[in-house]
């Protein structure tokens, strides 16, 4: 299934989703080879009675942008107190419109197609919107592709003389829950909080006051299969270290695992391990206030995948 196929009930697809937290990461090529570009929406503000979103990372700095009722994307210039069109996504195909998008040379753009075929690091689609910039000589954006509900996936620009650069989207998170990425091998740790509170206000029993930490360990592989060699039946482990680096908790302590060597071929796919840890010492008392680090790893031999995330424990009396 291609992205956007289920959105046909909506008149105008959203070609540049504006939501605080949205991220787009691009890989450069040509004269931008060996570079990456990350852009994001960092916040909102009311300007001249309208809501704008802060776009950071775009060439040239930060911008305040919004979309009007037609779906066109506009940017607000605080110095001149006026807004201008960046992308007239609703414009008819082959109709030239005026644009102020940074990096264009000549102030003109045209939508060539809304059914352009796109194949790139994040996948393929046959409903990309293609914008061309006529009149480019030496320097300027030449062509951009946008996918509905994802945003810009490709930009090609002349960079002086007979040189060119391109950016391809390799990762995006849209609206908090939609994630697209190039094929990747990824390992990470998620905690359900950054700070845990032990409520020691009387008459609470201190042994019941220790907060619970939920950790999720995720190995995701959308590339070629990888080999995992486990020396026992244990899949993973978790250690909690205090500020001095001392281990104050280890998930596997006191657990027995079958002494069986396992060779596993993993991927494409995802493994999740979820575990709940009571943040208490061996006597059941809440761990002292302070900063800690939760450290996890897959119990392969040798150790290949590990991650750590810091957190805080606070006591209230």
């Amino acid at each position: 299934m291609l992205l956007g196929a289920a959105f046909t009930a909506v008149a105008q697809p959203d070609y540049f989703p504006l939501h605080v937290g949205n991220q787009w990461v691009y890989r450069g090529s040509g004269t931008r080879g060996g570079t990456a570009l990350a852009i994001e929406i960092t916040g909102t503000a009311e300007l001249e009675g309208r809501t704008y979103w802060r776009l950071e990372g775009f060439p040239g700095g930060g911008y305040w942008v919004r979309k009007d009722d037609t779906g066109a994307m506009l940017a607000y210039d605080a110095d001149r107190k006026q807004e201008s069109v960046w992308y007239a996504f609703q414009a008819q195909e082959q109709q030239v419109y005026t644009t102020a998008v940074p990096g264009n040379c000549c102030g003109r753009a045209v939508i060539h197609s809304r059914k352009q075929k796109y194949t790139g690091p994040i996948g393929e689609s046959d409903n990309a919107l293609e914008i061309g910039y006529p009149g480019v000589f030496q320097v300027g954006i030449e062509r951009e592709l946008f996918l509905p509900y994802v945003g810009m996936v490709y930009r090609n620009q002349a960079t002086g003389g007979p040189t060119y650069a391109a950016y391809e989207l390799t990762y995006a998170r849209i609206g908090g829950i939609t994630v697209v990425s190039q094929p990747e091998l990824s390992f990470g740790l998620s905690l359900d909080r950054a700070a845990y509170t032990a409520n020691l206000m009387p008459p609470v029993d201190p042994q019941r006051a220790a907060p619970e930490l939920t950790a999720r360990i995720t190995l995701r592989n959308t590339t070629r299969p990888v080999g995992l060699a486990y020396p026992s039946g244990q899949d993973f482990d978790l250690v909690i270290r205090d500020e001095k680096g001392q281990a104050v908790y280890q998930w596997s302590r006191g657990k027995a695992f079958p002494a069986v060597f396992r060779n596993e071929t993993f991927g494409p796919g995802q493994k999740d391990f979820l575990l709940a840890v009571r943040l208490a010492d061996r006597a059941g008392q809440p761990l002292p206030q302070g900063n800690y680090v939760a450290e996890v790893w897959l119990a392969t031999e040798p150790r290949q995948f590990a991650a750590s995330v810091g957190f805080e424990i606070r006591h209230i009396f």
Partner: peptide
């Protein structure tokens, strides 16, 4: 959908 989380991850483009 991950709910509340403080998370850190490393992703490589190839194994």
């Amino acid at each position: 959908h991950g709910g509340a989380q403080a998370a850190f991850a490393l992703s490589l483009d190839q194994p």
